[in-house]
Write a protein that binds this DNA or RNA. Structure first.
Lengths: 153, 153
DNA sequence: ATTATATAGTACGATATCGCATTAAATTAA
DNA sequence: TTAATTTAATGCGATATCGTACTATATAAT
């Protein structure tokens, strides 16, 4: 690979990382102290796709180690934003359920973030974002699959 | 903002965050234990744009808090990949300089990553990445400027 | 049926990240 | 010049993240 291509791919990942850092910091500055982006993200996910997911399913959805998701979910439990129930289909497992407080918190957080979202949309219109997301999804899917590939023998 | 747009922007940041996580984990799996992506990134930056930068300038380049950069640089010093000199222009400040070991480590790391890069390029060709980077830069620049804006009075 | 293997969740330890406070030096104001 | 303010770097403390190891349960193999 020549230097130009190498630099291109490095630049891509560098931009992605910086956008991730900045957006996360911005998000968390709006949320109550101690509530982090992963907390909100999990609540939002449960609202959108429905609750009752297992912690492991959530870990996979967000591509984080399961120990990390245990930690995140325990924070949500402490704040009574979710409750855990045993999984009737699997005695090893649990299921995660939204409480009313969890739904309210998620709705309120979206309102808190809405001004920032609007400011972003004013600078970067929605069609520009729509144009990016499919390619990003493709890259994310590749990385996810690649990570699970067996090593060369 | 309607739900569709909100979800679009959330999806964008979600994809960005996951790509950041996965790429970082992949990178670090190739590097020697204890050497992290930020270590490599700083070395690579110093090689590319020249060494002698101050820690604060590096923190700004990577959009991390200066305490984080202090920590990262100290790791590079421990491994003798860089040395710190006092800044002749400012007694409060320091400058960061590559050692031969640091340059060699960076070059070797690039070789270690090259197979992964090739695999990625085979799946996502360079022109697809080039098409993304300018928009990502634009978003990053917006977020960086937005973060420094004064609050509403 | 019994045994072996795989899987879900968690406890624990290591450490990266980052906010706050401190120190020393530079800059600005009076 | 002296005093007040700003700035660069770092020590310290809190905690998120994540790897390893462990327990309990489920699934597969014999």
């Amino acid at each position: 690979m020549d230097n130009a291509d190498r630099h291109l791919y490095f630049s891509f990942f560098n931009e992605v990382n910086i956008i991730g850092q900045l957006s996360r910091a911005q998000f968390e500055a709006r949320l109550p102290k101690g509530v982090l982006l992963p907390h909100f993200s999990v609540l939002n996910h449960l609202v959108r796709v429905g609750d009752g997911a297992t912690p492991l399913a959530l870990a996979r959805a967000f591509q984080v180690p399961k120990t990390t998701m245990t930690h995140t979910v325990s924070g949500l439990v402490q704040r009574a934003f979710v409750t855990l129930k045993s999984n009737p289909k699997d005695g090893r497992s649990k299921t995660v359920w939204l409480t009313n407080a969890g739904r309210e918190f998620r709705d309120d957080a979206i309102k808190l973030l809405d001004d920032d979202m609007e400011a972003l949309r004013a600078a970067i219109p929605a069609d520009k974002i729509s144009a990016l997301v499919p390619a990003l999804e493709e890259i994310r899917v590749f990385l996810d699959a690649y990570r699970n590939e067996p090593e060369d023998p």
